[in-house]
């Protein structure tokens, strides 16, 4: 069975100055994740690895590079899901963690629960000896500047961040050589969000969903809109109904636009290795690795073949 891994670095109006770094970042993450699959690793290991690579990359709004909330703090959301068991782990509104996706995986593997939030998630991290990171090490100078700017404009930017800014959630989906699928999504949310705001990313069926019987999905875009249509589950539903992966994603994004007037993006993979990376926003950095080939894109309809990956 063919192994495939697809990643995204967020669907939004990526400014030109971040374009190159974003594409480079998703390509590197896809290569890293794919290497895990190549050495016999599971889909779950591969999506975690790929998302960690993007959390560590300051160009993306997740882990290091996350946006700041209204109080100037970093609060992170993440989810991981195993299509083999429907097991899932998520953290919402967690602080001082460089790789929330790995903490989400610990919730899945070491507790009876699916989601831990806020201080409870941090207490759990402490208890299992999870490495913490001081807030300042997660914040980039770029983000601090943008946050100050947003503060200055006050309510004026409110409209902006619905359509333009700060939607660069990261995510990955994969199918391994055993036909197991998995997904992972991680984000810092939206700039100037209220303290305690939880977006779509950690919510099962919204920010991600994985089921060996149909496929795996990771979503990005305006979180509140994704939640309202439970986008990931909707895409999976269309795949269950026999739709091609690409059609299922396109149909669901169209539905989100029609019902709640919002753009977004999603990556998806089926157990047989069909995949899609589709968006209705201006741009989405994505990369996909299959059969030794790396594909990537940033603008609509763009699909470039890169040098082979190992």
């Amino acid at each position: 069975m063919k192994a495939v891994l697809v990643v995204h670095g967020g669907a939004w109006a990526i400014p030109d100055e971040l374009a190159e770094a974003s594409v480079k970042g998703v390509k590197a993450a896809a290569s890293e994740g794919y290497r895990v699959l190549g050495t016999g690793g599971s889909a779950l290991d591969a999506v975690e690895k790929a998302v960690r690579a993007m959390e560590d990359n300051p160009v993306f709004d997740a882990g290091h590079g996350a946006v700041l909330n209204a109080d100037g703090e970093v609060e992170l959301d993440a989810i991981i899901m195993d299509g083999q068991t429907l097991g899932s782990g998520a953290v919402s509104c967690v602080q001082n963690i460089a790789n929330p996706v790995s903490l989400a995986r610990a919730v899945m593997e070491k507790t009876d629960h699916v989601m831990l939030t806020s201080r409870g998630a941090n207490l759990f991290a402490e208890r299992i000896g999870f490495k913490t990171a001081p807030t300042e090490t997660l914040v980039t100078a770029y983000e601090r500047r943008e946050w100050e700017k947003a503060k200055e404009y006050g309510a004026g930017v409110k409209e902006l961040f619905h359509s333009q800014l700060c939607h660069d959630t990261v995510g990955a989906v994969a199918v391994d050589s055993c036909g197991n699928v998995a997904c992972a999504t991680s984000t810092g949310g939206i700039r100037n969000k209220m303290v305690g705001r939880v977006g779509d990313s950690p919510v099962i069926g919204a920010g991600g969903y994985a089921d060996n019987r149909s496929g795996a999905v990771s979503c990005t875009g305006h979180g509140e809109s994704i939640l309202k249509v439970t986008l990931a589950r909707l895409i999976i539903f269309h795949i269950e109904q026999g739709k091609e992966v690409e059609d299922a994603v396109a149909l669901s994004l169209r539905y989100m636009d029609e019902r709640v007037h919002s753009g977004g993006g999603a990556i998806a993979v089926s157990p047989s290795g069909q995949w899609a990376a589709t968006f209705t926003t201006e741009r989405m950095a994505w990369a996909a690795a299959e059969q030794g080939t790396l594909w990537y894109g940033l603008n609509p309809q763009e699909r470039v073949q890169d040098k082979p990956v190992q």
């Binding site: 609060e75 619905h162 705001r197 509140e224």
Partner: peptide, 30 residues
């Protein structure tokens, strides 16, 4: 989610819907 010291969380959930641009608030933030 994980809200404390509120007699009627359902009414707080409704306020999140009607008074914020968000959908879910958690713990201390809620």
């Amino acid at each position: 989610s994980a809200v404390r010291n509120i007699a009627n969380p359902i009414q707080l959930a409704r306020l999140v819907m009607e008074q914020t641009s968000h959908l879910c608030l958690t713990a201390g933030g809620a």
